[in-house]
Amino acid sequence: MASQIRLEHLTKRYGAVTAVDDLSLTIPALGVFGLLGPNGAGKTTTLEIVEGLRTPDQGQVWFGDLDVVRHPHRAKALFGVQLQTSSFFELLTVSETLELFSSFYPKHIATADLVRRFDLTEKATAQVKTLSGGQRQRLALAAAMVNDPEVVFLDEPSAGLDPQARRHLWDMIAGLKAEGRTVILTTHYMEEAETLCDQLAIIDHGTILAVGRPQDLIRERLPGSLIELAPSVALPDGIRFAAMTALDRGEEAVVIHSSDLSKTLVDLVAWAGGASVDLAGIRTRGSSLEDLFLSLTGRSLRE
């Protein structure tokens, strides 16, 4: 039976830098859970503490009733891990690599099955050094699955992949979820978070800013719609439109937040007509994770 993972008051410092700051979080069993945040937010450190790879300065991690901080060795046998920069012996073949990792675990899946499942059949007897980026990433995923784990940790699984390889990887991650495993991944790609994750924690400066289903988070935190205008549109300071809740003057666009799109639009068009302002390029959309992230952290994910 799958268990949830509880992170309680985790703190990890590196010298003067606090990478994880009194972080508490409950990750439900089953489904895909995403830690979303910019580089340096503390995602990887948090993940590695949960994996049993790092010891926190303070706090506890529970996998069901297993104390991960105290018994990392037991936890590691149950977890599957793909590290952000994990690499393998370049001169071993794909099959040999998977067999080597299998030998580390009490319980394991047959290498031939893993090779087939992660689309590595034609590379099974090729040395790791000959693999492409996408193939390496699939090998890393296969190596994370050798022990048939209940929980799979993926740290930036699609970093550096081209869009096609990324899609391919997402299908495989969705497959893990369909098998009834818990998948915990970090990402700074909005699309990945929206496509894959059942639940998200938005993390920055080592603390959790928001947790929930992506759509719920957006609906609760950023209800309403957005109107984007070209940055050349000169809105006077202090201007207000009907049902407008906020106004962002970005470099790429001027964004009007609205709680009632039609009311705001009518008001905006009336103002533009009176002031002879050209609204060419105007578009409206619902709030996205990107907007949510921006409103929570004050910075863009891509920074």
């Binding site: 060795h73 891990v81 393998f88």
Partner: peptide, 17 residues
């Protein structure tokens, strides 16, 4: 080299002692 490439860390993430 293995340390730099992260090969050793990957081993540490398994029950290998």
């Amino acid at each position: 080299r293995w340390k730099e490439q992260g090969v050793l860390r990957r081993f540490l993430a398994t029950p290998l002692r």
